[in-house]
Each structure stands twice: as C-alpha cells, then as structure tokens.
Simulated assay, not measured.
Amino acid sequence: MPTSATPFSPPNPAEARLLLLDKHQVETLLTAEAVLPAVREAFLLHAAGEGRVFPLVREPLSTGGVFGIKSGDVQSQGLLGFKAAGFWPANRALGGEPHQATIMLIAPETGRPLCIIDGNAVTTMRTGAAGALGLMHLARQDSIRLTVFGSGVQAAIQVQFALACLPSLQQVSYVNTNRRRDEKFEARFAARCDIAPAADHNLAVSESDIVITATPGKAALFELDAVRPGTHLNCVGADTKGKRELPPDLLARAKVFVDDANQARQIGETQWHAETPVTELGDVLSGKSVFARADKDITVFDMTGLALQDLTVARMLYAQALQDQGRHAGIAWPW
C-alpha cells in the first residue's frame, strides 16, 4: 500500500491530492493476470485474521434500487477503505449498467481519502477471479461441460475465468432470462468451446460437471433432482436478503464453501439454511482446511463477495496509477 509519503498524500496537508480513476482508466489497468493473485491474497488475509471485514450495509431504496457498503482493513498493511455499491434495475432503460460501484481508499493514519475508483469493472473482475479460485480448488479438474445461468456481464466473466483456469472444458450451455439465443455472448467464447443456449435447463444441469448461477436471484433456477453427483456449483446471484438461485434442500446434499460465513448467512444462499455447515474458501487456500473431492461429492461455492477483494484490487490499481501520474487525473484535496 502506498504510504503517506506518496505524491497523493504528502507530509504537508496543504499539498494533499486525491487520485481519480474513471471507468476507462480502470479497464486499461485491470487484467485477469493481475486480479487473480490480488483476490487470492484477500482470501488468505481473511483466513489469517489479518484482514477485517466490517459489518455489511445492504438496504432497499424507494427508487427500486438496492444500496450497499462493504468495508474493511488490513492493519498490518495500512490498507483501509470501502466500496459503495448496489443494483439499480431501471438503469437498463437508460442504456446503463444496473450494477453500480465506487471504491475509496483511505489513509488509515489520517482518515483522508487517497483514491476514488470506479468500481464496476473491479467488482466484475474480482468476482470472476473468486469464481476461478473456487473452480480450481473445488471442482473436478477434468470437467468438460458447463452450464451458466445468465448471459450478462457477470455470467460472461465467470465463463471467461472458467475457460481460462480449466483447460478441459469443451462445452458451454447457457440459460438467460428470455430463453433466447445471445449471439454476442456466444461470439465471446466460440473460439474456445462449443457454446449454445440450453434447450432444457434441467437437462443441461443434469449433463454438466459445473453449474454457474449469475442472475438477479429471485427463485430457484432448476430442480433439485437435476443436480447429479460430482457436480460443482459457483453461485453468484444471491447477494441480498431474500435472493436465491438454488433449489430447496440442495445445500443439505452438498459440501458448502463460502467466502465469509457470517456474510453468506446474511445475504447468500445459506441465508435459507443458516444451520448448514460451511468452510471458508480462504481456509482451503491457506491449508487450514483440507478438502479432497470424492467422485460423487456435490460442492457449492456460495459467493457473496469480500470487501477485502475490492481493497486488494483497488490497492493494485492505485499503485499502478501512481507509477504514471501524468495519465491519471488528480485534484487538490488540502486539509
């Protein structure tokens, strides 16, 4: 983490500046290769107790949107900040993205902001990277068939990371909300795999080694009996109270992994079965928990997103931007 000696947080408060990274700058700096180790670090910090996740804010608005704040710190690294984010479905009618996020890094010594970052691409990429870590450590490494529910931004990044981390994948079926062909979605992956819309969503699940759910999460997307032994599921859409994507009783049949146990019970799939035994993925990555997959295991990674993931990725972007300040806007921010 850049210290108070950086040009954007000088010793003289009157000379302080605030770095601003907009959507286009973030997308230029952000790569899958850089995001994956940053997200892995977030899981390891959480497992070691070095990274704190503060109480979650997630509240419905009268506008029809949902507003949330995820925040945390790593005291040993001088890392502190938050992401204000949520979901505004009416944005689609405006030609905009329903998911909106803004990240702020703060100097823990003074409380002054160091950097404000457009968080949309960060959220997309860090969630894709988290999904990849789940697949790498929980799914069968010889998996061939994948079914994804959704064909939007998050579904696409999940498939992108899945194809990158599991070379054995050959076939992708997708189910979107209107059950129609999405040629743009298919074109993104056609050179890497056979991809087509699923004619029957339950049949597609039953024939898949991996299932990814990345939808607004209003109700179960498929039937319980469609999930065959040996299947791994990455579940992304349930991130608010009342949302779900999995059928009732599936968690009881599965080995369940989460990013944060308390948060998953508040807003993830496990809110519906709070008594479900869970293992945090960070414990698997650190070796604190050992998972050896049996052939017939059904595994679920209930992903609700860690504040620490946003912060480790934001720190990486901040450090990169500081190396080339001439290309990134900053404004005077004296105090």
Rank of each mutant, 00 (worst) to 15 (best):
I144R: 15
V205D: 12
A196L: 11
G150C: 07
I195G: 00
C165F: 13
H232T: 11
F185R: 12
R192H: 01
C165W: 10
Q171K: 13
L224V: 10
D194R: 14
A204R: 05
L166W: 04
H232N: 09
S143G: 14
Q158I: 02
K218D: 15
P229N: 09
H232E: 07
E245F: 03
T231M: 12
D182L: 01
P167K: 07
L166R: 00
A226E: 08
Q141G: 05
F222C: 05
V205Q: 13
Q160M: 13
D260R: 00
V172R: 01
D209H: 14
E183H: 03
G217C: 06
P229E: 07
A190T: 14
S168I: 10
A190V: 15
D194M: 04
T231S: 11
A198T: 06
K255E: 15
A198D: 08
L246K: 13
A196F: 11
L250C: 07
R188D: 07
A162M: 01
G237Y: 10
R179W: 08
Q158V: 01
C165M: 14
N202E: 00
T177Q: 15
R188S: 10
E186G: 04
A252T: 15
L146P: 06
L233D: 04
R145D: 15
A164G: 12
A261R: 09
G152C: 04
A226F: 05
T177F: 08
R188A: 14
S143M: 14
S206L: 02
A187E: 12
I212P: 03
L224Y: 07
R180V: 13
E183S: 10
C235D: 00
V227G: 02
S143V: 10
Q160F: 02
F222A: 04
K255V: 12
A261P: 03
P229Y: 08
R188N: 12
L224N: 06
L146G: 04
N234T: 14
S173F: 09
A219V: 14
T147P: 11
Y174T: 02
A226G: 03
I157N: 00
R228T: 15
A204Q: 06
T177W: 14
D194H: 11
E207V: 00
N176K: 09
